[in-house]
């Protein structure tokens, strides 16, 4: 799989860069028969904090960029991912997936990106309303990005799972911090795709690490506006909802599997702003 003869180092993706975890800890990634594949980084809560700082810095500019640009960038991710299909297939096969299934997963991820790229200038029209009011005002409501969204991906962390949670939050103008699932290698290779697709630094940040260590920190952070948790564990869900109360984060709970493509996943991380505009009598 490689000419180097040395296993690749899988680092984190924070603020457009690939730093090692500040903690120096590793996750040993093993194949289906227990063979060593690579050392990935085991992110600490400080890495998470740094990711939120990077996301916060990026969120303003990304939210203001035009729908057209956001759509183009998502489409660009799809193009680059498509061109790197073989790399992803190799990694997935090493993880124990049959080759035809691996190819299907990459194709599904590309389709998802194209799907959400298309929504970028359409969901606003779908979710906006003109409201009848009993005064001489033109009253309308329209969606705006929440800001910084943290995402706990489905446990397995396959490529379609990862893309299905990142793309809707991202196309809605949010900056995201994602905790990848067990398939750390795919997640970081996907980060390499993001890094070469004109995605502004900090708009997507990807961490690999232990879920039980990081999920509570995700829920507690005061500078996070919303959180997506893909989990079937009632206790984990309740824990997140309790911690999220402190700064009234918006929490979206989803089952532990890929999100089916839908504009309503974009709506999960939008705030609805209503405007009262006086009109002549």
């Amino acid at each position: 799989m490689s000419n180097l003869g040395i296993p690749k180092t899988y680092k984190l993706f924070i603020g457009g860069k690939f730093p090692r975890t500040e903690s120096g800890r590793i996750l040993k990634v093993r194949g289906p028969k227990g063979e060593f594949l690579a050392n990935a980084s085991r992110a600490s809560r400080k890495d998470f904090r740094n990711s939120v700082v990077a996301a916060r810095r990026a969120s303003g500019g990304w939210a203001k960029s035009t729908a057209y640009l956001k759509g183009q960038i998502l489409y660009r991710i799809a193009e680059i991912l498509d061109g790197r299909t073989d790399q992803f297939v190799n990694e997935l096969v090493a993880h124990g997936l049959p080759e035809n299934k691996a190819r299907a997963e990459v194709a599904e991820a590309v389709d998802l990106l194209v799907h959400y790229a298309g929504w970028s200038d359409k969901y606003q029209a779908l979710f906006s309303t003109v409201n009848p009011v009993a005064s001489s005002h033109f009253n309308f409501s329209s969606p705006e990005p929440s800001g910084v969204v943290v995402i706990v991906s489905p446990t397995r962390g396959s490529l379609p799972e990862l893309v299905s949670v990142i793309a809707p939050a991202m196309v809605g103008g949010n900056a995201v911090v994602v905790l990848a699932g067990e398939n750390a290698l795919t997640a970081i290779s996907f980060a390499e795709v993001l890094a070469t697709s004109d995605v502004p630094a900090g708009v997507v940040n990807i961490l690999t690490g232990h879920r039980d260590e990081l999920v509570p920190e995700f829920a507690k952070h005061m500078d996070v506006n919303a959180m997506l948790l893909c989990s079937d564990d009632a206790e984990e869900r309740q824990g997140v909802e309790l911690e999220a109360v402190e700064n009234l984060k918006r929490v979206a709970l989803q089952p532990d599997r890929p999100l089916s493509p839908s504009p309503y996943h974009i709506l999960d991380f939008q705030e609805i702003k209503t405007t009262w505009h006086p009109v002549g009598v």
Binding site: V52, E217, K220, H221, M222, D223, N247
Partner: peptide, 9 residues
Amino acid sequence: TGRYQSGDY
């Protein structure tokens, strides 16, 4: 508090 803070507060 053990919580990372936000400039909003």
